[in-house]
Simulated scan of single mutants.
Amino acid sequence: MTGKYAPPAVTIRSYPDSPIRDVVVVVRDQEMIPRCRDYRQAMQWARLERKTYKIFEPDTGFPANEEAGDLPLFCVPIEVDHLPARDECPDFISS
């Protein structure tokens, strides 16, 4: 055994049509996979594991002081106004 291991890594695995996420932690060629109920909990767990094993934050390629207007649209937070249901809207005219 040479004693050389791959660098530690933390990733989040998601499943189609499910809010459940797995946080995959690989340290010294050993995997630990805690299951989380949603993305927020998975992010909190991943941050905790990165701090524990001193894994640096992934580089997004964007400077920290970059304005939201300079970012690509997929990185900009979007506010969504939810419309009332059709039967709750007084101006709705069925055709």
Rank of each mutant, 00 (worst) to 15 (best):
residue 21 R to Q: 07
residue 58 P to Q: 07
residue 45 W to S: 15
residue 72 P to R: 00
residue 49 E to F: 04
residue 15 Y to P: 05
residue 24 V to R: 04
residue 26 V to S: 14
residue 5 Y to V: 06
residue 61 G to F: 01
residue 40 R to M: 11
residue 80 V to I: 13
residue 93 I to V: 15
residue 24 V to C: 12
residue 52 T to I: 07
residue 46 A to E: 04
residue 74 F to N: 15
residue 59 D to R: 07
residue 15 Y to G: 01
residue 34 P to A: 00
residue 27 V to P: 03
residue 13 R to C: 11
residue 12 I to F: 04
residue 84 P to H: 05
residue 83 L to M: 12
residue 64 A to G: 02
residue 82 H to A: 14
residue 75 C to L: 12
residue 19 P to Y: 00
residue 70 D to W: 02
residue 73 L to F: 10
residue 36 C to I: 00
residue 4 K to V: 12
residue 18 S to M: 06
residue 59 D to G: 03
residue 47 R to D: 15
residue 90 P to Y: 01
residue 64 A to V: 11
residue 1 M to H: 12
residue 83 L to I: 09
residue 30 Q to D: 05
residue 10 V to K: 03
residue 5 Y to I: 04
residue 7 P to A: 05
residue 49 E to D: 06
residue 44 Q to G: 13
residue 21 R to V: 00
residue 87 D to C: 05
residue 55 I to H: 00
residue 92 F to L: 07
residue 24 V to M: 09
residue 77 P to I: 05
residue 94 S to I: 11
residue 50 R to S: 06
residue 50 R to W: 03
residue 74 F to V: 12
residue 92 F to C: 09
residue 12 I to K: 04
residue 1 M to A: 13
residue 34 P to L: 01
residue 47 R to S: 08
residue 3 G to V: 05
residue 64 A to K: 14
residue 45 W to I: 10
residue 68 A to M: 09
residue 6 A to M: 08
residue 15 Y to L: 06
residue 10 V to C: 07
residue 21 R to L: 03
residue 30 Q to Y: 06
residue 38 D to F: 00
residue 76 V to R: 15
residue 94 S to N: 09
residue 16 P to H: 09
residue 17 D to V: 09
residue 29 D to H: 07
residue 1 M to E: 10
residue 49 E to P: 01
residue 34 P to H: 05
residue 33 I to G: 04
residue 4 K to Y: 09
residue 21 R to P: 03
residue 32 M to G: 09
residue 2 T to L: 08
residue 53 Y to N: 13
residue 57 E to H: 07
residue 12 I to A: 04
residue 37 R to F: 01
residue 68 A to F: 07
residue 70 D to T: 06
residue 94 S to Q: 15
residue 35 R to K: 11
residue 48 L to E: 14
residue 52 T to V: 05
residue 37 R to V: 14
residue 31 E to W: 04
residue 83 L to G: 08
residue 1 M to P: 14
residue 70 D to Y: 02
residue 7 P to V: 00
residue 15 Y to R: 10
residue 94 S to Y: 11
residue 3 G to Y: 08
residue 59 D to H: 04
residue 90 P to I: 04
residue 21 R to M: 04
residue 43 M to D: 12
residue 87 D to F: 09
residue 82 H to S: 13
residue 20 I to C: 08
residue 36 C to N: 08
residue 11 T to Q: 10
residue 56 F to A: 15
residue 2 T to A: 09
residue 28 R to N: 14
residue 68 A to T: 06
residue 61 G to T: 02
residue 61 G to Y: 00
residue 24 V to E: 06
residue 18 S to P: 02
residue 37 R to A: 08
residue 55 I to R: 00
residue 12 I to W: 01
residue 52 T to M: 08
residue 85 A to S: 12
residue 5 Y to S: 10
residue 28 R to K: 13
residue 49 E to H: 06
residue 52 T to Y: 05
residue 53 Y to C: 04
residue 11 T to G: 14
residue 72 P to G: 02
residue 1 M to N: 11
residue 74 F to R: 14
residue 59 D to Q: 04
residue 39 Y to H: 11
residue 69 G to W: 03
residue 35 R to F: 00
residue 10 V to S: 03
residue 75 C to I: 00
residue 8 P to E: 04
residue 89 C to K: 09
residue 54 K to Y: 02
residue 89 C to G: 02
residue 83 L to A: 11
residue 48 L to I: 06
residue 23 V to G: 01
residue 59 D to F: 03
residue 29 D to N: 14
residue 75 C to K: 09
residue 70 D to S: 12
residue 32 M to L: 11
residue 53 Y to W: 12
residue 30 Q to S: 12
residue 17 D to Q: 12
residue 13 R to T: 13
residue 78 I to Q: 15
residue 79 E to G: 10
